[in-house]
Lab assay of single mutants.
Amino acid sequence: LQLFIKTLTGKTSTVEMEPSDTIENLKAKIQDKEGIPPDQQRLIFAGKQLEDGRTLSDYNIQKESTLHLVL
Protein backbone atom coordinates (compact mmCIF):
# COMPACT_ATOMS: atom_id res chain seq x y z
CA LEU A 1 0.00 0.00 0.00
CA GLN A 2 1.10 3.51 -0.77
CA LEU A 3 1.59 5.83 2.18
CA PHE A 4 2.32 9.54 2.32
CA ILE A 5 4.87 10.80 4.83
CA LYS A 6 4.50 14.49 5.56
CA THR A 7 7.31 16.35 7.32
CA LEU A 8 7.03 19.54 9.36
CA THR A 9 8.54 21.47 6.46
CA GLY A 10 5.50 20.47 4.41
CA LYS A 11 7.41 18.07 2.19
CA THR A 12 5.56 14.87 1.34
CA SER A 13 7.26 11.59 0.43
CA THR A 14 5.62 8.44 -0.84
CA VAL A 15 6.54 4.95 0.38
CA GLU A 16 5.27 1.52 -0.63
CA MET A 17 4.58 -0.80 2.32
CA GLU A 18 2.65 -3.95 3.23
CA PRO A 19 0.00 -3.95 5.99
CA SER A 20 2.09 -6.58 7.81
CA ASP A 21 5.18 -4.33 7.85
CA THR A 22 6.25 -2.97 11.21
CA ILE A 23 6.73 0.68 12.07
CA GLU A 24 10.43 -0.20 12.29
CA ASN A 25 10.39 -1.32 8.63
CA LEU A 26 8.67 1.92 7.71
CA LYS A 27 11.30 4.00 9.52
CA ALA A 28 14.05 2.08 7.70
CA LYS A 29 12.38 2.88 4.39
CA ILE A 30 12.10 6.56 5.35
CA GLN A 31 15.81 6.48 6.21
CA ASP A 32 16.57 5.13 2.71
CA LYS A 33 14.58 7.93 1.08
CA GLU A 34 15.26 10.87 3.39
CA GLY A 35 18.50 9.97 5.18
CA ILE A 36 16.94 10.45 8.62
CA PRO A 37 18.07 7.86 11.20
CA PRO A 38 15.13 5.82 12.60
CA ASP A 39 16.00 6.77 16.17
CA GLN A 40 15.33 10.42 15.28
CA GLN A 41 11.99 9.70 13.62
CA ARG A 42 8.65 9.97 15.37
CA LEU A 43 5.66 9.01 13.29
CA ILE A 44 2.20 10.29 14.14
CA PHE A 45 -1.02 8.89 12.72
CA ALA A 46 -4.53 9.82 13.89
CA GLY A 47 -2.99 11.74 16.77
CA LYS A 48 -1.04 8.72 18.06
CA GLN A 49 2.70 8.18 18.12
CA LEU A 50 3.48 4.89 16.39
CA GLU A 51 5.55 2.28 18.23
CA ASP A 52 8.33 0.39 16.44
CA GLY A 53 7.16 -3.13 17.25
CA ARG A 54 3.63 -2.69 15.93
CA THR A 55 2.46 -3.24 12.37
CA LEU A 56 0.67 -0.89 10.02
CA SER A 57 -2.47 -3.02 10.29
CA ASP A 58 -2.33 -2.74 14.12
CA TYR A 59 -2.95 0.97 13.65
CA ASN A 60 -5.48 0.41 10.87
CA ILE A 61 -3.32 2.38 8.44
CA GLN A 62 -4.94 2.09 5.01
CA LYS A 63 -3.62 2.82 1.54
CA GLU A 64 -2.95 6.48 0.85
CA SER A 65 -2.95 7.32 4.55
CA THR A 66 -0.86 10.33 5.50
CA LEU A 67 1.55 9.93 8.40
CA HIS A 68 3.28 12.88 10.03
CA LEU A 69 7.01 12.67 10.59
CA VAL A 70 8.31 14.64 13.56
CA LEU A 71 12.01 14.87 14.37
Rank of each mutant, 00 (worst) to 15 (best):
residue 15 V to G: 01
residue 44 I to N: 05
residue 18 E to L: 14
residue 15 V to F: 14
residue 62 Q to M: 10
residue 59 Y to A: 02
residue 70 V to S: 09
residue 33 K to E: 08
residue 12 T to Q: 07
residue 69 L to S: 01
residue 50 L to R: 00
residue 38 P to D: 04
residue 20 S to K: 08
residue 56 L to V: 05
residue 64 E to D: 15
residue 10 G to C: 05
residue 12 T to C: 11
residue 8 L to T: 13
residue 45 F to Q: 03
residue 51 E to P: 02
residue 51 E to N: 06
residue 46 A to R: 14
residue 41 Q to D: 01
residue 8 L to N: 12
residue 27 K to T: 01
residue 1 L to I: 14
residue 34 E to G: 05
residue 51 E to Y: 07
residue 16 E to A: 09
residue 37 P to E: 06
residue 19 P to R: 09
residue 65 S to W: 03
residue 23 I to D: 01
residue 69 L to T: 01
residue 45 F to D: 01
residue 1 L to E: 03
residue 57 S to F: 09
residue 54 R to D: 05
residue 44 I to D: 04
residue 60 N to G: 14
residue 26 L to R: 00
residue 11 K to N: 10
residue 30 I to L: 08
residue 46 A to Y: 09
residue 20 S to T: 12
residue 15 V to E: 02
residue 19 P to K: 08
residue 56 L to M: 06
residue 69 L to G: 01
residue 9 T to K: 11
residue 69 L to R: 01
residue 58 D to R: 01
residue 12 T to K: 06
residue 66 T to N: 04
residue 15 V to Y: 15
residue 8 L to R: 11
residue 34 E to R: 07
residue 3 L to E: 02
residue 42 R to G: 05
residue 60 N to A: 08
residue 37 P to N: 06
residue 18 E to V: 10
residue 15 V to P: 00
residue 19 P to E: 08
residue 16 E to K: 09
residue 26 L to V: 07
residue 22 T to W: 04
residue 39 D to R: 12
residue 40 Q to N: 09
residue 52 D to E: 09
residue 25 N to V: 12
residue 42 R to P: 00
residue 1 L to H: 04
residue 59 Y to M: 03
residue 62 Q to F: 09
residue 24 E to H: 11
residue 38 P to N: 06
residue 15 V to N: 01
residue 30 I to Y: 03
residue 44 I to Q: 05
residue 39 D to K: 12
residue 10 G to Y: 03
residue 28 A to T: 09
residue 60 N to R: 06
residue 32 D to P: 02
residue 49 Q to E: 15
residue 36 I to M: 04
residue 25 N to I: 13
residue 65 S to Y: 06
residue 29 K to P: 00
residue 29 K to M: 09
residue 24 E to D: 09
residue 61 I to N: 02
residue 34 E to N: 10
residue 15 V to W: 07
residue 5 I to V: 07
residue 8 L to K: 10
residue 51 E to I: 08
residue 36 I to C: 04
residue 63 K to A: 15
residue 13 S to M: 15
residue 58 D to L: 02
residue 38 P to I: 15
residue 67 L to W: 02
residue 68 H to S: 08
residue 50 L to Y: 00
residue 50 L to I: 04
residue 22 T to I: 04
residue 10 G to P: 02
residue 8 L to M: 13
residue 27 K to E: 00
residue 39 D to H: 13
residue 35 G to M: 05
residue 5 I to R: 00
residue 6 K to M: 11
residue 12 T to A: 06
residue 12 T to F: 11
residue 54 R to L: 11
residue 6 K to L: 10
residue 22 T to Y: 08
residue 17 M to V: 13
residue 52 D to L: 06
residue 4 F to A: 05
residue 2 Q to H: 12
residue 55 T to S: 09
residue 41 Q to P: 02
residue 60 N to P: 04
residue 55 T to N: 06
residue 35 G to H: 06
residue 29 K to R: 11
residue 49 Q to H: 11
residue 47 G to P: 01
residue 36 I to V: 10
residue 43 L to S: 00
residue 59 Y to H: 03
residue 41 Q to V: 10
residue 14 T to L: 12
residue 42 R to H: 11
residue 9 T to A: 12
residue 65 S to E: 07
residue 25 N to H: 13
residue 50 L to P: 00
residue 42 R to K: 12
residue 37 P to M: 06
residue 13 S to D: 05
residue 58 D to M: 05
residue 40 Q to W: 10
residue 12 T to Y: 10
residue 18 E to F: 14
residue 11 K to R: 10
residue 25 N to L: 14
residue 44 I to F: 15
residue 18 E to G: 08
residue 53 G to I: 07
residue 47 G to W: 04
residue 21 D to N: 06
residue 32 D to A: 14
residue 69 L to W: 02
residue 62 Q to I: 12
residue 30 I to E: 00
residue 9 T to S: 14
residue 61 I to L: 07
residue 67 L to Q: 01
residue 36 I to G: 02
residue 4 F to V: 11
residue 39 D to M: 09
residue 68 H to P: 01
residue 23 I to S: 00
residue 4 F to T: 12
residue 17 M to Y: 11
residue 12 T to L: 12
residue 16 E to I: 13
residue 36 I to S: 03
residue 47 G to R: 03
residue 14 T to K: 10
residue 48 K to Q: 14
residue 49 Q to C: 10
residue 25 N to E: 12
residue 15 V to K: 01
residue 31 Q to H: 14
residue 71 L to I: 14
residue 28 A to V: 11
residue 35 G to C: 04
residue 31 Q to N: 09
residue 46 A to W: 08
residue 5 I to M: 02
residue 20 S to Q: 11
residue 43 L to Q: 01
residue 18 E to Y: 14
residue 4 F to W: 08
residue 28 A to K: 15
residue 47 G to L: 03
